[in-house]
């Protein structure tokens, strides 16, 4: 049997294929469209302390091999998340990673404190990087000291694995990566979307209500690979790769540059079965090549 399970902190994941926050709702939307058993982890839509309405339309725009979004983290808030969304999530065999965001450091701590004892939650992903929220958000990921401090505060609230999700919209992603590692994160996930923009030439208006938004999809994969490669060389905690992954080939590239796991994001919208397909394809690939996942991770061969 070729091994594809991974471990982050104290938690084992049956396979390294996860679905990215904000692209998989609270999983219930995908009922009937995907075999949940083949998904290593469901990372939920971001949960905040209070409910959020999200941004005004238009929120999305399709670009060349990608899409822009400015959704603005609409969510039901932590209380309703526990009451309304966890019951379904709890029925899944996948690991459940709850993505958490806040406007202040206290918000992150409060949300994690609320969720820590809720049954069925396996880990937390700290969203330090949403480019579409006006207050806070970005500052947590673009300032190494703040990111470290928030991570350290949240660390005190939970023994569950903490995955810090980083933005590429900084000068040095590895500075931030090292800081949150210092703060006690068990893993990093990268990259969140890149700030982008599109204009309707006919009306001379921006395509998104917030003018700029986050670019995702295959268009960003080369950038994601470079950032993940950089992070893997800079930190000693595992890195979960995100950025334009559509198929096994894409996932393999990220494993080879050092990622321990990948998250499928934008692809879920077009092919809701994508993550499960990649898991099956990975299993086949490992069998055919007689490899374990660990043989692939960081196997990049660089001349000289």
């Amino acid at each position: 049997m070729n091994e594809i399970a991974i471990r982050i902190g104290s938690v084992e994941f049956a396979n390294p294929i996860m679905v990215a926050s904000g692209t998989f709702g609270y999983a219930e939307e995908f009922d009937g469209l995907v075999d949940f058993r083949e998904i290593g982890a469901v990372v939920t839509k971001t949960v905040t302390l209070e409910p959020r309405p999200g941004n005004a339309p238009p929120r999305i725009y399709e670009t060349a091999a990608g899409m822009l979004n400015s959704i603005g983290l609409p969510n039901v808030g932590v209380k309703d998340f526990i009451d309304q969304k966890m019951p379904f999530l709890r029925t899944l065999q996948s690991r459940i990673v709850v993505n958490v965001a806040g406007v202040t450091a206290k918000d992150y701590v409060a949300v994690v404190a609320c969720l820590d004892s809720v049954p069925g939650i396996d880990a937390f992903e700290l969203n330090y990087s949403c480019p579409n929220v006006k207050q806070g958000g970005m500052s947590f990921s673009s300032n190494a000291q703040i990111a470290e401090a928030v991570t350290a505060s949240v660390r005190k609230e939970t023994k569950k694995p903490l995955i810090a999700k980083l933005t590429p919209n900084v000068t040095s992603i590895s500075d931030i990566g090292r800081a949150v590692e210092q703060g006690g994160a068990d893993a990093l996930s990268a990259i969140n979307t890149l700030v982008g923009m599109a204009v309707d030439v006919r009306t001379r208006k921006p395509r998104l209500s917030t003018i700029t938004g986050g670019l995702s999809g295959p268009a960003i994969k080369p950038i994601a690979l470079a950032k993940v490669y950089e992070l893997c060389k800079s930190v000693s905690i595992p890195v979960v790769a995100i950025g334009g992954i559509m198929n096994l080939h894409d996932a393999l590239e990220f494993f080879m540059v050092g990622a321990i796991a990948v998250q499928v994001g934008t692809a879920n919208f077009m092919n809701p079965g994508c993550a499960a397909e990649i898991t099956r394809d990975l299993r086949c690939y490992c069998q055919q090549q007689d490899l374990n996942l660990s043989d692939l991770i960081g196997s990049l061969e660089v001349d000289g």
Binding site: P51, A56, R59, M67, I71, N268
Partner: peptide, 25 residues
């Protein structure tokens, strides 16, 4: 409406309600 997914996951196709059930919705 423009839609990325069509089944409620991307939340990209909001329609404004005249009398929302709650201020945050």
């Amino acid at each position: 409406n423009r839609m990325a997914c069509g089944f409620g996951a991307c939340m990209g196709c909001p329609v404004k309600l005249k009398n929302p059930g709650a201020p945050h919705k």
